[in-house]
Design a protein around this nucleic acid. Sequence first.
DNA 1: CCGCGTCGTGACAACGTTGTCAGGGACATG
DNA 2: CATGTCCCTGACAACGTTGTCACGACGCGG
Lengths: 332, 332
Amino acid sequence: MRDVAALAGVSLKTVSRVVNDEAGVSQDVRERVAAAVSRLDYRPNLAASNLRRTGARTGVVGALVQDLSNSFSASLLRSLEDSARLRGTAVLAASLDEESDREVELVHDLVTRRVDGLVLMPASERQDYLVAELRTDTPAVFVDREPRGVDADSVVVDNRAGAALATEHLLARGHRRIAALVDMESIRTASLRHAGFTDAYAGRHLPPDPRLVVTSVRSTDEATTVMHSLLELDDPPTAVFCGRNILSVGAVRALSERGLQHRVALVGFDDFPLADLLDPPLTVIRQDVRRIGSMVADLLFDRIDGNSAPPQHIVLEPTLVVRGSGEIPPPG
Amino acid sequence: MRDVAALAGVSLKTVSRVVNDEAGVSQDVRERVAAAVSRLDYRPNLAASNLRRTGARTGVVGALVQDLSNSFSASLLRSLEDSARLRGTAVLAASLDEESDREVELVHDLVTRRVDGLVLMPASERQDYLVAELRTDTPAVFVDREPRGVDADSVVVDNRAGAALATEHLLARGHRRIAALVDMESIRTASLRHAGFTDAYAGRHLPPDPRLVVTSVRSTDEATTVMHSLLELDDPPTAVFCGRNILSVGAVRALSERGLQHRVALVGFDDFPLADLLDPPLTVIRQDVRRIGSMVADLLFDRIDGNSAPPQHIVLEPTLVVRGSGEIPPPG
DNA sequence: CCGCGTCGTGACAACGTTGTCAGGGACATG
DNA sequence: CATGTCCCTGACAACGTTGTCACGACGCGG
C-alpha cells in the first residue's frame, strides 16, 4: 500500500479510500491510484483490515459435518456454499467422523480463527462446552441434530416420525418380522430413529422382536455382516429398516449376495444417489437436503447480521419415496 | 492479552512468550499467566499474529473443485482434509461448476485471503491469469487436469490410456458398434478420454462410427436423453463407453428404462459408490482418489515448506474394475 | 570487591490497515 | 476584503501481536 501511495503520489489514507470506494476523492486522484494499484498488483491485506476495523467480518464460516465424503454431508455443504457465496463468504469445512474430541478441538480452532459463524452437525452428546466458546458471540446453527446443553438455532428432520413412517409402511404390507439396523444409540438421530421404529409397532399394539433390532451398526461393512447373520436365523426377518444411508447399502449388499433382494423388503432412512437404480429400486425416507442447507444458511446469516431473537428450532417432515424395495410383500 | 497481562501482573511480551511456549520464562510466572489465560478465556488473535510475524502462515489452504457434492470431488476433498489436519491446516473449499469466470474470481479471493496454498481442479482452458496471482508466491497444485499457460505441480490420471483401456475391453469382447458419451471437448479430461476411445479403435485398425460418439454431454439427465436416442437408431450400439461417472448413471438409467441393462455392455470412467450394486454391477475405470488426494497434499505442503524445485507432473495409471456390465457380449 | 556472562523480564517499534481530525484551497456571502 | 462553508487530502493513532534490544539481578572466578 505504501508503494501504491508513493507511485500515485498520494498518502496512505487516500489509497485506502480509493480501495474501499469511499466518497470524497477527486476523480483524477482516484484514477491515478487505481492505475498504481493495478500496476503494482496490490492486494489489500484482509487480516490487517479486519484488525483495524471494529467488529469486522472475516467472511468465513465454519462447517463441521459428519464426513465430507458422505453424500448427505457433501450435499449439505454444497447447499451451504451456494448461500454463502451470495454473501461473499467462504466456507471452511471439516469432518468429525463422530468423534466428539475432534468436534471440541475444531470448534475451538474455528472460533480462534474468528469465523463469522458456525454450522455444526455435532458428534458429541452434549455441547455444554459451546457456552464458553460462544461467549465470543460467534453464532452457531445446528443441523441434523438438535443441540443439548446449549441453546442455539437448529434445523433437523423429524427422525422419529420418519422412522415410524418407514416401519408402518412395512407393517401395513403385512410384515411382522421387521429387522432394524441403527447406528450407536449415543448419536441422537440414531436413537430417535430407533424410537420411531418402536413407535410404529406400538401404534398397532404389536411387539417388535428384540433379536431383530441391532444397534451400534457403524459402517457399511458392519451392516453387511449383521444382515447376513440376521438372515441365518431360524426365523429370519421378512423386511428390514435401515437407519442410515450407508447401512442401507450394506444391507442391500448382503441381500444381493444371497439373491434375496427381491424377497426381503427394505426401507432406508436417507436417500442417496443411485438408490433408484438399484435392483429393486430402493424405497427410502428422504430429507430435502438442499432445503435444509439453505434454511441453515438463512438462520446463520441472520444471526451474523445481528438478530438476537430466541433460537429457533426448525423441524422438517421427511417424506417416503416409494420405489419398489419397500413394497415387497411378506412370503405366503 | 492486555487483560491477561494485567491479571498476571506481567508485561504483554511475557504473555506472548507463554502463549507461544517460548523459552526464558520462569516456572511460576508461566503458571500465573496460564491461570490468567484460562480464567479470562483468552484467545490469541491469529490475524494480528500473522500480521506481525514475518512470512507467517494462515494455516488455511484453498481447494477449488468441480462440485463439492460430486463423489469424486468430495472424496478428494476429504483426503486432502485428512492430510491438512495432520499439519494443523484447515481447508477452504468451493465449487466451480466448470465456470471459468468463477475460477478466476475465487482464486483471486483466496490469494487475497492469503491462503498458504491452492489446490485447483481447473474449469478454465488456460490458466495464464495464475502467473500474476502466483507472484505472491502462493503455491498451487493442479489435480485431475494439468495446467496450461502456467507451470505448476499436478497430479492427474492418464485419462487417454484409461479410456483406451475401457474401449479395448469392449472391442476385445467383439463389440464393434460402441457408443461414447463425453463431456464438453473444452474440458481437458473429456477431450483426452475421447481421444483414448479413438486410440483403441485405431489400435485395431477399425473406424468408430461417428454417429455413436456424442460430445458435450453435461449432466445425468442429458446422458439419459442421449442414450435413449442412440438406442432408437436403426443400427443401435451394442456397447457404450461413458466418459464420466454422472454420465454412466444417466446411461444406466436409460438402459434400465428400456430393460436393456443386460443386453448392452457399458464401461464407465470413474468409479462411484454403489456402482457394484447396480444390476448388472458396473465395470469401470477407477482412479485411486485417496491416493491422488494425499499426493496432492504432499506436493502442496512441500512447496509451502519452501521447496522450489521445478514443478512435478505426476501421472497415475487408472485401473479397470471388472464387475459385469462391461462383459456383456454383443448379440449373436 | 570487581568484571563478566547468564537469565528472566519489559519497553518499544513494527506488521498493514482505517477512523478521527485537522489543514488548506476554492468559492460564496456580507 | 474578511468570514464562513464545503471539499479534498494527509498526519497520526490504534487494532493485537511479536522481534529486537536493553536492563537489572544473580552467580562465578580472580
